[in-house]
């Protein structure tokens, strides 16, 4: 094998070119190019859809679909309270299920307790040999015997370029380790069943069990603005998106989103317009593109782009989640030179 950038011969197992530092595309990774369409094949049935009138009687968690017979008050897999109905807005968005403080989730021999309401903490009790990975700045505390090491990432150089964490940290049991983020919001435990994948916007990850594969792909959602001689490229959902997949054994993914989190299931071909920065996660089957909306206006400004809304248009089928806190895209109202594929509407 040779480096695709500079042509230097590569050694086996090398992740970066020793001459120019370019990340090495291994055949395994190259065989599965990160395309949003990839996971459409062999997607197992989606978890039981959430309904506001789905009581406990079914013996299933109405959030993640886990079997929950046996009188527990919380789902052992995702922590959703089982003896309450899930609030479903009339518009089709569901809130994250109510979670009792101190709810415990079971993942193999390890467990995770979720503590607190405003800025929840994920407190993992790792069994010997079990491990989780995380970005180091979410570590809240750990017991001394928990061994923390760095996890090598393929393509790390490209990630640094995109402003994403270069180093993933891995913690191995036995022992306790706890994670939290620094703003009020909700902790989202996603239990990934074998064969499932989920696409997550960058910086949302709190921790994941080591059997969850971590990959990323380019979002191809961008626009370019020009200010004098400066051209700037903006990525409203990030240049990259994380994709987490579970292959053989079920894994646990812990995300943290700002404010409240709402989830909905889009039918095939159904669309919804959301603020790009409010996206939390989506099924790989959900397609994204930019959408410009021009409101009807009785006055003419000399800068028509001042008067335009920038949306992210999501098309089903699949599940999407948004957070109620989102950053404002200041550049969204600047003059744009070029942009990725987009639809538009004019009133």
């Amino acid at each position: 094998m040779f480096c695709v950038n500079c042509g230097t011969p590569l050694l086996d197992g090398q992740n970066f070119c020793r001459n120019c530092g370019s990340p090495v595309k291994h055949p395994a990774a190259a065989a599965a190019p990160p395309s949003p369409l990839r996971a459409t094949v062999a997607q197992p049935p989606l978890p039981a859809q959430v309904r506001n009138a789905a009581p406990v009687a079914t013996g299933r968690c109405n959030w993640c679909g886990a079997d929950a017979a046996g009188g527990q008050s919380s789902c052992p897999r995702c922590g959703a309270a089982l003896n309450v109905t899930v609030p479903l807005a009339e518009s089709g968005w569901t809130q994250m299920p109510a979670r009792k403080d101190m709810t415990k989730l079971q993942i193999g021999n390890s467990s995770c307790q979720i503590e607190g309401i405003y800025v929840p903490v994920a407190d993992m009790n790792l069994a010997a040999g079990d491990s989780v990975y995380f970005t180091h700045h979410v570590l809240l505390w750990k017991e001394p015997q928990v061994n923390v090491t760095t996890m090598p990432l393929k393509g790390g150089w490209k990630r640094l370029f995109g402003g994403l964490p270069l180093i993933m940290t891995q913690a191995e049991g036995p022992g306790h380790i706890a994670f939290s983020k620094d703003d009020p919001g909700e902790l989202i435990p996603l239990s990934l069943q074998p064969g499932h994948s989920v696409d997550v916007r960058e910086h949302m990850l709190l921790a994941a069990t080591s059997n969850v594969a971590y990959d990323w792909f380019q979002t191809h959602i961008w626009f370019e603005t020009q200010n004098g001689d400066d051209t700037e490229t903006h990525y409203p959902v990030g240049c990259f998106m994380d994709r987490f997949s579970s292959s053989n054994t079920p894994g646990l993914l812990l995300l943290h989103a700002g404010g409240n989190v709402f989830v909905r299931q889009l039918a095939a071909g159904q669309t919804i317009l959301i603020q790009a920065t409010s996206l939390v996660f989506k099924d790989p089957t959900v397609q994204m593109q930019l959408h410009f909306e021009h409101p009807a206006s009785s006055f003419i400004t000399w800068k028509p782009w001042n008067n335009r809304y920038l949306w992210l248009r999501l098309t089903g089928p699949g599940r999407v989640a948004i957070q109620s806190v989102f950053e404002r895209i200041e550049a969204g109202s600047s003059e744009m030179k070029r942009w990725s594929a987009a639809t538009s509407a004019r009133w």
């Binding site: 669309t271 959301i274 603020q275 909306e293 021009h294 009807a296 008067n307 809304y309 509407a345 009133w347």
Partner: peptide, 12 residues
């Protein structure tokens, strides 16, 4: 604005 349905008409 957090999200909207496409059919909601917008003006200023």
């Amino acid at each position: 604005m957090l999200w909207k349905e496409e059919r909601v008409a917008m003006s200023v």
